[in-house]
Design a binder for these strands. Structure first.
Lengths: 347, 347
DNA sequence: ATGAAAGCGCTAACAT
DNA sequence: ATGTTAGCGCTTTCAT
């Protein structure tokens, strides 16, 4: 009969290891950090004892005294957006390389629960925070930054309290226009991302480039969001409001998800892509690369952003820098088969 | 001139709060757990002090003495698969409801790095582990289970050391066949998931149902994988090997991603969906629901699986159960527009 | 090269 | 109702 039914046994501590190896805890602790600093004989005894007991150092106890947990806290605004999946992949990979653990959390785009989520990461004593597209107010960001270094991703910031790394969304908007104009399009519409972070910049870039090309007359901007539904609704609105024959020959959506919504709305109306209308997205997520979709998109290298974020944070943690830093990455065009020159209408 | 340039100030401890409120640490500790058990006057003084200092309890210190961290460790086999995105959403939501933090990690489907990832979660002293589709050997699972309760998701298990919750993939395979046969299909192919967890069961369900319907003659099974590429390659193989006129009228892919690959391969050949060929996926991920895709799929309720996993784990943690449990959920059919009756060829 | 001792911030008996 | 005390498992001077 088992003593306590299937209870998990007390896990071995550093003292257990020390006893079994016949040394003091200090020596065991030393071996953990720098085995060579311990005499060969003792070292081997300790190593053996650790293996026998399946000893696993307690990161909390260590964190308590070291005042550093080796954990990075990450807030993702949205688990279901593939962009964040790719971001976390980069993040995790880099963190592992640096031997850091990552604690994820999300607030589901709700400012209140985001604050709670951040609070929870802080209670766990994450050494630093990476906030991807947070919706909380800047005061909340500053409060967090008063406790640990904070890197904010993909959200333009006023405050100097946080580091900030973001894709140049305005440039992205311009690149989209350049691509379409280069193809010969003159009537171009944008289904924007609504109030989401970065949406405004993409729209401004789009508008500015259109203006510079003297294409304001044929420009349309309709409201959308960063979801498939948003793109669908935006495209429907476009279809509804445009006089026949003045329909844009190209549509640039705020992100890939929305672009897929646009695709659907157009196809439902019997329009062919890219023959009748060209469509572009943003993010170059795996959705865009699906053969069935094959969407021309603007790549903001989510994976790379994750890596940069970790590196900036670690730089701060190491005390190597104390002034805030703004990193702005350049998006790039990834042409696929959803864009093509417009059909010749009148020569 | 700042004392130490932009260093983060020492964070207030329970002692700081106690001093400021003019009481002992114990009282502060009490207020943290049950405010009503403390005299009104002191309680208010303590609450005020906490607010003034922006005090945040140190979860590590607490965890050290309580022998419980309130953290759940979660291993995801693949960040980029939407299935896991939806799973984590359910997981996180339920965990938050129960006031538990979640620590994510991944081993990128590599057994060795998965073991490391699990080790890291264990060092952080996660109270329990949820492993979604792990690739590690059963001994590794047993070793982990010796330290904390472990719930394994979507992987059939021999060992009794872990709880195990999984979708009934074999039933899923049968459901797919029933749906297609009900529509009138007789020549049906399956692009399988290769060596991935659950792939074998789906295939077996498919084969069994085909046999029961006496459809073995028109059955094809080709190798694929849980990726778009796998589906694409599988469908190409099918197209290549089938004699003209004997091409299956329906294809069931191992998951949605693969189904999208199948879609692409068929479309490239000029085949129309569902007019020429019906296509089904598995997972009912958001991919399937994209209007542009609109894929009939088998739903295994990823979100719900996440909830169940947390609940099972918590049940163990509470000591409410010590024998292992197997939860098998029933998948359901979600019909969309990628399946339809086959074209009448010969009446 | 090794050990002793003093905490890290908190909780949980045990007093009062 | 409130204070005292003894750790939780570990690191880290400081001696030896």
């Amino acid at each position: 009969m088992k003593p306590s039914p299937s209870r998990h046994q007390r896990r071995p501590t550093i003292v257990d290891v020390a006893q079994r190896a016949g040394v003091s805890k200090s020596l065991v602790s030393l071996v953990l950090r720098d085995p060579t600093s311990v005499g060969l004989e003792n070292r081997e005894a300790i190593l053996a004892a650790m293996a026998d007991l399946a000893y696993r150092p307690n990161a909390m106890a260590r964190g308590l005294v070291r005042r550093r947990t080796g954990m990075l806290g990450v807030l993702l605004s949205d688990l279901s957006n593939p962009f964040f999946g790719e971001l976390s992949a980069g993040l995790l990979r880099r963190a592992r390389e640096l031997d850091l653990a990552v604690v994820f959390n999300t607030g589901n785009r709700d400012p209140r629960s985001e604050e709670e989520a951040i609070g929870s990461l802080l209670e766990l004593r994450a050494d630093g925070l990476i906030l991807a597209g947070p919706q909380v107010g800047e005061e909340a960001l500053e409060r967090a930054a008063a406790e640990v270094p904070v890197v904010v991703l993909n959200r333009p910031l006023e405050t100097e309290a946080c580091d900030c790394v973001t894709d140049d969304d305005e440039a992205g908007g311009r690149i989209a226009v350049e691509h379409l104009v280069g193809l010969g399009h003159r009537r171009i519409a944008h289904v924007d991302g609504g109030p989401g972070a970065g949406a405004g910049m993409r729209r401004r870039g789009f508008e500015a480039a259109m203006r510079e090309h003297g294409l304001l007359a044929g420009m349309h901007v309709v409201e959308g969001s960063f979801t498939e539904q948003g793109g669908y609704d935006g495209a429907r609105a476009l279809l509804r409001t445009c006089a026949p024959g003045t329909l844009p020959t190209a549509i640039f959506a705020a992100n890939d998800l929305a672009a897929i919504g646009v695709l659907s709305a157009l196809e439902e109306t019997g329009l062919r892509i890219p023959d009748d209308v060209s469509v572009m997205g943003y993010d170059n997520s795996f959705l865009a690369s699906l053969r069935h979709v094959s969407l021309t998109s603007i790549d903001q290298d989510a994976d790379g952003l994750g890596v940069i974020a970790v590196d900036r944070l670690v730089e701060r943690l190491g005390g190597g820098r104390s002034h805030p830093v703004r990193v702005v990455t350049r998006p790039t065009l990834v042409p696929r088969s959803s864009t093509a020159p417009p059909r010749k209408e009148s020569p």
